[in-house]
Computed example of a mutant assay.
Amino acid sequence: MHFGTFTPAQRIFRDAANARQALASQWLSAAQVSQGLGSHAPNGSHLISQLRRAGKLLGVYVTHPSPSYRYPAWQFLPSGQPVDHLTEILALLREFGPFEHELGGLRRSTYWGEVEWFLSPHAMLGGATPSQILSADPCRVLRAAHVEFQGEA
């Protein structure tokens, strides 16, 4: 293989990474989320990181322009607060969804699998994506997650 030549699989991974990067560049930084939540503390980004690690916010890891987490805007109300039931939806996705569990229950995830679920059309939402319905009807998204991942109505 010549330098600069990619296999088809390498091109797919590169293109997917570029698409994710472009999508995440439109989302909020931890500092922006902190401001939206009304925090004016100089360490507001630290609070947001704690909320993400506690499963109360969805943040995805990106490496460009610098390693950080970005937060999809659709998980927030216009007031800047997270939508209702977000914590429960994220708990279902992470506990029962098919997103990167390792032996021993360890999770090593950039959380893109969860984002893909939110951005994929869902039959229980009339073909809309969970991200489109989330702020208007979070209970409906929670029900769809229950049915998909636990088989409960």
Rank of each mutant, 00 (worst) to 15 (best):
R107F: 08
H46L: 09
S66L: 09
I133N: 03
L58Y: 02
L57Y: 02
R108E: 13
G36R: 15
L58Q: 00
G4L: 10
P67R: 12
E114C: 02
V141C: 06
A9G: 03
I89G: 07
A9V: 05
L28P: 04
Y69P: 00
H85M: 04
L103Y: 11
S34I: 01
L51C: 05
A30P: 00
P72L: 01
V115W: 14
Q81C: 03
Q150K: 12
G44F: 03
Y69E: 10
P82T: 12
R107A: 08
S109A: 13
R11H: 04
R108F: 14
S66Q: 15
G59K: 02
Q26S: 14
R94G: 03
G44I: 13
G59Q: 06
V60I: 15
F118V: 10
A123M: 09
Y71R: 04
R108D: 12
F149Y: 15
L142G: 02
A41D: 12
R20W: 03
G97Y: 11
G38I: 04
G44Q: 04
T7A: 07
Q21H: 08
G38A: 08
L125F: 09
A144G: 04
T110V: 11
R70K: 15
G97A: 03
V141A: 05
V83W: 01
P67Q: 12
N43M: 02
H101S: 10
P138A: 11
V83A: 10
R107Q: 14
E88W: 06
Q32M: 00
F76W: 08
F99S: 05
Y111V: 05
M1G: 13
Q21K: 00
L125P: 06
P8Q: 10
R108L: 14
L125E: 04
R11E: 02
I133Y: 06
G104K: 07
V115D: 01
R52N: 10
G105D: 07
P82L: 10
W117K: 03
C139F: 10
R53P: 02
S109V: 13
I12N: 09
T110P: 08
A9K: 13
T63V: 12
S39R: 13
A30L: 04
Q132K: 15
A128K: 15
E152T: 07
L51W: 15
H46K: 14
L103S: 07
S109N: 11
F96I: 00
A145E: 00
A153H: 09
N18Y: 09
I12T: 14
V62Q: 13
A136H: 13
P138M: 09
E95F: 01
S49D: 14
D84T: 12
P42K: 09
Y61E: 11
A73F: 06
W74G: 07
P98Q: 12
R108C: 09
A91C: 06
A145D: 02
A30Q: 04
G127F: 07
L28I: 09
G55V: 06
Y71K: 06
A19C: 02
Q35M: 01
K56A: 06
A17K: 11
H101D: 12
A128Y: 03
R70T: 07
Q26W: 03
H64W: 14
T7D: 00
H46W: 15
R108P: 04
G36F: 07
G105K: 10
P65H: 02
A73N: 08
L28C: 07
W117M: 00
L93A: 05
P67T: 10
Q35T: 02
Q50D: 11
R94N: 12
S135K: 09
N18K: 14
